[in-house]
């Protein structure tokens, strides 16, 4: 499998001198195409910093972040913005949608920022909304949608243009369990379709949807789990 994201010995510190705080310490891990990775850890363990670095929203103090083999530190601001728009999709806990735009306009935004004609961008956005099961809500504004529907719009915006890396920060945090499962199903399907998905969560039940769970503590990876063997073998207790 092709590696989409790689963090190589990444350290991230904030502040300087006596007030320096290390958010990540010598973290190395990669995510392949088609892989769904969950990141867990207590508050302050570095989860959000890891996601920000993985998406090029922040830069490593030491080490290197690669997206599709491109070292982010080698890029200028314009190139970095371009790779973020084309290769990376973000899903946030509070959706970060624009209330004055409809669902299809929100989903189409990354393509329009790339200079696409609105009509073409909207056609592709409708397709993305169809993939997340809400094409019929395309012309609704955000206050006309439930939390789960808004999160699906946010996922549509994140996957539009076949972006290969999807980063999700507590994407189910504001949703009830049934709606949250629907969102996880969409992320899982994107991974099964070939995207690399990294999701930060504090809910074990949600992390268990992933192929691999990475545990962070005090800025370091302390463990990683993966699904092993035949799951049905777990269901017989004897």
């Amino acid at each position: 499998m092709r590696q989409i994201l790689e963090l190589a010995s990444v350290t991230k510190t904030y502040g300087s001198g006596d007030t320096t705080v290390a958010a990540l310490r010598d973290v190395s891990f990669g995510v392949e195409a088609g892989e769904f990775v969950a990141v867990m850890g207590p508050s302050g363990s570095g989860k959000s910093s890891l996601l920000a670095l993985a998406g090029g929203l922040d830069m490593a103090s030491h080490g290197e972040v690669y997206i599709q083999d491109t070292p982010l530190s080698s890029l200028g601001l314009a190139e970095l913005a371009r790779i973020r728009r084309r290769a990376v999709g973000y899903v946030f806990q509070d959706f970060n949608l624009i209330p004055t735009l409809t669902a299809v306009e929100n989903a189409a935004l990354p393509l329009e920022l790339e200079g696409w004609k609105p009509s073409k961008a909207h056609r592709v956005a409708r397709n993305a909304l169809r993939q997340v099961g809400i094409e019929h809500l395309a012309d609704r504004f955000m206050d006309q949608l439930s939390g789960g529907q808004q999160q699906r719009v946010a996922i549509a915006r994140a996957i539009i243009g076949e972006r290969s890396l999807i980063l999700a920060d507590e994407p189910t945090g504001a949703l009830d369990s049934v709606t949250g499962n629907g969102v996880l199903e969409v992320l899982r399907e994107r991974a099964d379709a070939g995207a690399a998905v990294v999701m930060v969560t504090h809910e074990p039940r949600h992390a268990a949807w992933a192929d691999r769970v990475v545990f962070l503590k005090d800025g370091r990876i302390v463990d990683q789990s993966s699904v092993q063997g035949d799951p049905n073998s777990l269901l017989v207790t004897g």
Binding site: A210, F215, D223, S225, V227, P231, S233, L234
Partner: peptide, 17 residues
């Protein structure tokens, strides 16, 4: 941590099932 890892792996299996 040893238990946490084992339990999340079990849970991953349940979710996959």
């Amino acid at each position: 941590q040893t238990q946490r890892l084992a339990t999340i792996q079990t849970m991953q299996g349940y979710v996959r099932a």
